[in-house]
Amino acid sequence: MVPKKDYFDEKAAKWDSQIKDEVVLRLKNMIEELALSQGSKVLDLGTGTGVLIPMLVGAVGVSGLVVAMDFAPRMLAEARKKYHWSNLEFLEGEAENIPLPDQVIDEVVCNSAFPHFDNLWQAAKEMSRVLKSGGRVAVFHPHSREYVNELHAFLGGAVKNCMIPEEDVMRDIFSEAGFEKISIENTLQSYLLTGRKA
């Protein structure tokens, strides 16, 4: 079976052409609802080809910082080609071992990537580690949990087991990682988990 990293690298060049306008609009609305603060440091975990980058850079302003991270080098290469802001940094690495110091990030956003991490529990702990006290995590998809899980099962191969766990399991994962005030919303057009680091 093709490893996940190779799976995404192989699709990197054509990835953007598969993102529909309505999905981009949903993501814009979700970022706006998060109301990120000007000057904040945001980790875009699983940035892919960088669909969120312009939205995040605009939200944090010139005094903020966006760190766009992915484990697939070709996905990152596509993002690097498009975006060259001074308040944007790129980082290659695994979600289970984020190459950042402790407590340096204000917000972790994770769009359409969480179920692809090999160890969801460890990834959540790493999100908590790099967040400052009181920092927020937001794990989201521009589709429902059911849609995402059915799509991955249908696609098969490297992503066939990449499922968003049920609500009680997600709460356990993030609670054990040190998050409080965990909220989960699952609608026909979006999935959103948020939590605050204790």
Rank of each mutant, 00 (worst) to 15 (best):
A158Q: 13
G156I: 04
E107G: 00
V2P: 09
V57R: 04
K181G: 11
L52W: 01
E10R: 14
F8H: 04
E94P: 01
V139H: 00
V2L: 13
E176W: 05
L155Q: 14
I184T: 02
R196V: 13
W121I: 09
N87Q: 12
G39M: 03
V23C: 03
I31V: 12
V67L: 15
G39R: 07
E10F: 08
N29A: 10
R129W: 08
F71Q: 11
G195R: 00
R136D: 03
L151G: 00
N149E: 07
I53S: 02
W85T: 07
G46C: 08
K132D: 01
E146M: 09
D21N: 11
E185Y: 06
G48H: 05
D106C: 04
E22M: 12
A153D: 11
K5F: 06
N186C: 04
R129N: 09
D21A: 15
A138K: 00
M69S: 08
G93C: 11
P101G: 12
S190L: 04
D6I: 10
K197R: 15
G58P: 00
V42C: 04
V67E: 03
G48C: 07
N161F: 10
S144T: 09
E78Q: 15
L76Y: 07
G178F: 03
K197V: 02
L193V: 07
P165S: 09
N119M: 09
L43M: 13
A95V: 10
A77P: 01
C110Q: 02
A59N: 08
E22V: 12
N186T: 07
I31N: 05
I19F: 10
L36W: 00
S128R: 07
N111P: 01
V130M: 09
F154W: 15
G50D: 05
S128A: 11
A138S: 12
G156K: 08
S112Q: 08
N111D: 07
W121V: 14
R26G: 07
E150R: 12
A35W: 02
L34R: 04
R171H: 13
G46F: 03
I31W: 03
R136H: 07
A153F: 06
W121Q: 15
V137A: 10
G135I: 03
P54I: 06
A124I: 09
H143E: 14
A79H: 04
W15H: 14
K125V: 03
V23K: 02
L120D: 01
D16T: 05
S112A: 11
S17H: 13
V67R: 06
I53T: 02
V104Y: 06
M1S: 14
G58V: 01
L100F: 14
A35H: 08
K125G: 14
A95Y: 03
I164L: 14
R145M: 13
H143D: 10
I105C: 05
Q18L: 15
G58F: 01
A138M: 05
T47V: 10
A158L: 12
I184W: 06
L34M: 10
F154M: 14
E92D: 09
